[in-house]
């Protein structure tokens, strides 16, 4: 059973790697995030493959997918849907917007106005949409993959810390290596996600998600996580400290990573693997952000000995 799950996950990684070459670790992190049931934020410069990755993820999970391109004039209704008066039935009928998909790609999320951003983030948290006094359930599973450009680029509204917190992970893709980029050039043109075969289905996804909380976390691991979190609170090096929600997120993500790695118990390396993705956007100040800065989560990581008792 676990073997089957493990095979499928490996298969998914392989599938996506065909499209995004040389980014195994980022792909695994993205899978980890979605398996943990969290929303994912991909942050990078334009043209780095953000959209391709999110598209590939949706395909690989075999879920229905929609994409919302955020712009400064995008209104909440464009995303959530509208009530339209049907003159024949003399009643308002709800026309769901693109948000009513299992995987929603919110492209360039920081280009929309704060009003639209908060509408999206509210839907992410509640997993439902309220419109004119009516509540509409969003489909399940429901993942939002947000992409954003680095903040210093023109025409962006930075997401506030409170909303960044809603994303379980934030990953950066970064430039590919020499060999990877060369391989990309050598490949026949196929940056189209439609070539990817769905590897996982909804039942398997549900099984995997159920197995995640059962991953054994030894006391040493919990202590390690707490030492990390405590350091972020006590040290002056970090603009923002990690909240208890971040602590929970760290454990959840680490467990999910362990499942991706095919283990049913946590080791310190699991925590270390997900820490940059889980903690970085929570530690940073939202305004002074700069991706090339020394990674804060790295600083945090290198100050705590996982073996200390």
């Amino acid at each position: 059973m676990r073997m089957a799950m493990q095979n499928q996950i490996q298969q998914a990684v392989v599938e996506i790697s065909q499209l995004i070459i040389g980014k195994q670790r980022e792909i695994k992190l993205a899978l980890t995030c979605l398996l943990a049931g969290g929303h994912l934020l991909i942050e990078d410069l334009p043209g780095m493959g953000k959209t391709t990755l999110s598209h590939a993820l949706a395909r690989v999970f075999g879920l229905d997918f929609s994409r919302v391109q955020f712009t400064s004039d995008l209104l909440p209704a464009d995303m959530l849907g509208v009530n339209i008066f049907n003159s024949q039935t003399q009643a308002f009928v709800f026309h769901p917007g693109p948000l009513f998909s299992q995987v929603v790609l919110a492209d360039e999320i920081n280009r929309a106005s704060p009003k639209t951003q908060s509408a999206l983030l509210e839907a992410m948290e509640e997993r439902q949409v309220s419109l004119d006094g009516e509540t509409h359930k969003l489909p399940s599973p429901f993942f939002v993959i947000g992409t954003q450009n680095p903040i210093h680029q023109a025409g962006t509204y930075p997401l506030p810390e409170s909303q960044l917190d809603r994303f379980l992970m934030r990953i950066q893709l970064g430039y590919p290596s020499w060999q990877a980029e060369k391989a990309m050039l050598q490949q026949p043109m196929q940056d189209n996600a439609t070539t990817i075969k769905p590897v996982l289905d909804e039942t398997l996804l549900a099984q995997i998600q159920q197995s995640i909380p059962k991953v054994h976390a030894a006391e040493g691991i919990l202590d390690y996580i707490l030492r990390l979190v405590t350091l972020s609170r006590e040290s002056e090096q970090f603009p923002n400290a990690l909240s208890p929600r971040a602590t929970k997120a760290l454990l959840q993500a680490a467990r999910s990573w362990a499942v991706v790695e095919g283990r049913d118990y946590l080791i310190p390396e699991d925590v270390q693997a997900v820490l940059p993705a889980v903690a970085e956007h929570r530690l940073r100040s939202a305004l002074t952000d700069h991706p090339t800065q020394t990674s804060l989560s790295r600083i945090l990581l290198e100050q705590v000995d996982p073996l200390a008792a």
Binding site: I267, Q272, E302, D305, P306
Partner: peptide
């Protein structure tokens, strides 16, 4: 035991960075 092994390795000049997990 593990610390002893680490000490032996350190004597050979291979030192574990304080933060690294055993697998890594």
């Amino acid at each position: 035991y593990y610390q002893k092994a680490l000490t032996m390795l350190a004597a050979q000049g291979i030192e574990r960075p304080e933060w690294q997990g055993p697998q890594d």
